[in-house]
Nucleic acid binder design. Structure first.
Lengths: 128, 128
DNA sequence: CTGCATCCTCGAAGATACTG
DNA sequence: CAGTATCTTCGAGGATGCAG
């Protein structure tokens, strides 16, 4: 991130020109939020946990066949670090680890729901 | 896309076991929809067009300072190909190209709106 | 102004093997 | 079962220059 970008200057206005809610500030805030959801598997994972579901590592693996263990573990840990997902380890043999949404993660439900509805409409539309 | 995935088999059930709406089918549909939104700049672009805004290429450039011309053009063309964004060329000197959401693109508004609200909550939360 | 063409870098993601 | 470690590839994305 933060490339040299020799091609553009961000100009950085003196901050006092607007009351506090411009499309620009919105875009910035959204950009930050988007960073959390970035990653090819994050949303897919969240959809598995959507609705209070609790899933084991291997269940997620089965649910998302194209993901590798490495990527699944990595994205899960990022989601955990961002406070979206909770990871619970059961110290037993064989090991058992369960993933679920945190309370904060639940706040994503409207987003997931909107996405779900959109993809549904997308299917029923003749020529998307 | 479509890696060799030697590590997993998708199993492909005979399709008749469920009425037609399982978490699995939902996940698949969402996966398809997600492909359209995939790309580091797509959502940022859509937020600029959100609410019926019409934006010129250079305006989008200014609004998203970190994106390069190349990526902006590329992602715009992908969005156009997916029917989300409309591109209107005004044959004049100097050239002028305007981008806006298609009707189908407008159907993404609930998603964008939910994201916007989420990022707002995210800001006002002490420890995210 | 709005792009496309080219070259090149660099890190995301895959394969594979190993462990508590 | 649920990961980590290591090596490698591959293409997304950046820099730059040119064109309609």
């Amino acid at each position: 991130m933060e490339p040299t970008r020799t091609h553009k200057k961000v100009s950085d206005p003196p901050a006092g020109e607007e009351p506090g809610w411009t499309p620009v500030t919105a875009a910035l805030a959204v950009g930050e939020a988007l960073r959390v959801l970035e990653g090819r598997w994050k949303l897919l994972i969240l959809f598995q946990l959507f609705g209070g579901n609790v899933r084991r590592f291997s269940e997620l693996e089965r649910a998302i066949p194209e993901v590798t263990q490495k990527m699944l573990a990595q994205q899960l840990r990022q989601l955990e670090a961002d406070g979206i997902v909770r990871r619970v380890v059961h110290p037993e043999i064989p090991p058992k680890v369960e993933y679920s949404l945190t309370v904060w993660g639940q706040s994503l439900c409207p987003v997931l729901d909107a996405l779900l509805k959109w993809s549904a409409r997308r299917e029923e539309t003749p020529e998307a």
